[in-house]
Design a protein around this nucleic acid. Structure first.
Lengths: 193, 193, 193, 193
DNA sequence: GATGAATGAGTATTCATTCAT
DNA sequence: TATGAATGAATACTCATTCAT
């Protein structure tokens, strides 16, 4: 009984925090809004006061990451094709995963099909995978040998693999990105044997 | 009239085929048994004739992969610690992903939390992640520097990253495993700079 | 800062106007207070400053109409039974539907079950249908043949049918009441063939 | 506990029966599927086994009526414009309201906005109001005086008014249609005074 | 080897309403 | 005169599962 503004803290941010945690741990569909609400000690209806849908929570988690990726793609598109472009792109890609980007990254890996269907803006190209693909294509032309293509793409995804490797290991964020950077640079500098 | 034995083909296998496809594309929870049944032109109840639960379908998809991993771990455990152990383990790991193993692999990546909770046998150690962790630990002792640990683990997971890189690219299985092998060996042979 | 007294116009009347419009078009239950508030550019809570409940909005729309009907019934009750009573009652009934009465009428037709449950005063007799029934009974005694009863009642409801007929036709209020009056008088002057 | 086919009777028809009753009495939105299920002694999920949505229940109630109206319109469209066309159309219109048509009619009056949004087939013209309008237009050309138009339309709707008049009166279906027919014919034969 | 009919527990979402500010 | 933040109860709908036939 009795409604009104009870919690002083930023409820919206709290929701995001708990949601990303549960979505990542147990999966998006396997996490119900009831669970999120319960864990926060609020009602489901309160969630809806702050977010208009389950999907909109995900979007709010992802928007910053998506924008950053966008900026990276735009930047890459404008670079003249040079031997160092790959190296710099790879570095910037890894930079996306620091701080809050890391959480977004983990969420994305744990919920690939959700991310795949997440078109925050208007069209197709707006999706995460659309943007990644564009970046891939900028760094390896269409007639590069498949092995090279795969290696360069893998370099850009190096954080992902290290993140998987780090599960259960409590490695610091620094350790993770350091190794990822290392791997990435190794990959783009290796020629096929 | 005369219901029963309609489809001569192996219905059980058909179910598995469709299920793995949908589970991988749209996610385990996001795929309902109704969808699987509809796509096969049978009823939900018929699914239950062949499989006792949704989870048991997943298990049937995974069992072979799990057994193979088990065998690999057992083998590794018995090897004397030698410099080539890592190389041979990495190769065997990649061998797990050929043929039907590849589908299992993809499913696992798309549904990590499902796999994490899948204990076909009795205890904790029986889970996929439990086994992987054991393998990890065999190849890098507990006092290896974190960077080395991460790199070796990443090597063992190289197929995963190449699989992610290959999305939308129609690379052949051979191309994928070749690159994965390449990456893996590069990783275990690189010393920290 | 400085919240409060923003809209000079009569907010209460504005609410009533929008509410009756939406209630009539989309139905009472199908119209949420959120929609009304949004269309007015105010908050739901503001609605509650002006009206104590959703039902009370309806009541405020209806009260005048109900009072007028009340007066008509009281008047009819006191008339000596004469051959012209029906004619005059029918005319007064149609007079109820001019001006703001027309909107109330349309609302009532579109939301019959809401009106049926609307007892602004105390008892049963206070409801719109209770009052109408009383009027019906005054004009046709209990032993009139059913056909006559139906015809007289229909005469009293003639505006309703013309209103239904006029949908999508932009007929003037005058045209509508003229035809209704016409029909009503025809009905009470026709004997069963 | 224990599922399976418990009720011998035609559950689908039972659902329709109870639904139309409640929808008409209390309104479509004001009637929940829970209420319908409870009154039938089944679960909500059982409703969904038989009908795919709340709307589809309404459609199943309405389809026959809609088809009959369609046939009437088609017939009217093909008739040569003759003085008797109106009379015959009006009669056929009233015929639509006998038997199960009467229930559909009552439902339609009590839930006008639901019916208005019910497009069972493809386009706009498929809606109940679209069809009615077409019939209206066939019987009164576009340049008929508004009074005549209203009167003819009212004639076609005569059952509706008598139905409203009959509320609380337990008049037989025959009495209702007889009076409606009477009124209708009176209306189309009256010239403006 | 399969189906038709059902269930119980759950899901995301919406609504009218409240109240401290 | 209003609003921001919340609630409790409901809603339509879906899902994995069951079992008699």
């Amino acid at each position: 009984m009795a409604a009104g503004q009870r919690r002083g803290a930023d409820t919206k941010a709290e929701i995001r925090r708990v949601a990303i945690e549960l979505f990542t741990e147990r999966g998006y569909e396997a996490t119900s809004l009831r669970e999120i609400a319960e864990r926060l000690g609020i009602t489901k209806a309160a969630l809806y006061y702050h977010y208009s849908s389950k999907e909109s929570i995900v979007l709010s988690i992802f928007q910053a990451h998506l924008d950053a990726l966008d900026e990276l793609v735009t930047w890459a598109r404008e670079q003249p094709p040079s031997p160092e472009l790959r190296a710099r792109a790879v570095d910037r890609m890894i930079d996306l995963s620091v701080g809050s980007g890391m959480a977004a990254m983990k969420f994305a890996m744990a919920n690939q099909h959700v991310v795949r269907e997440l078109h925050p803006g208007k069209g197709e190209r707006e999706s995460m995978f659309g943007k990644l693909t564009e970046l891939f294509d900028i760094l390896t032309g269409p007639d590069a040998p498949i092995e090279e293509t795969l290696r360069v793409r893998s370099a850009l995804l190096s954080v992902n693999i290290v993140l998987m490797a780090a599960r259960g290991l409590d490695a610091s964020e620094t350790a993770i990105t350091t190794v990822a950077r290392d791997i990435a640079h190794t990959l783009i500098n290796t020629k096929n044997p």
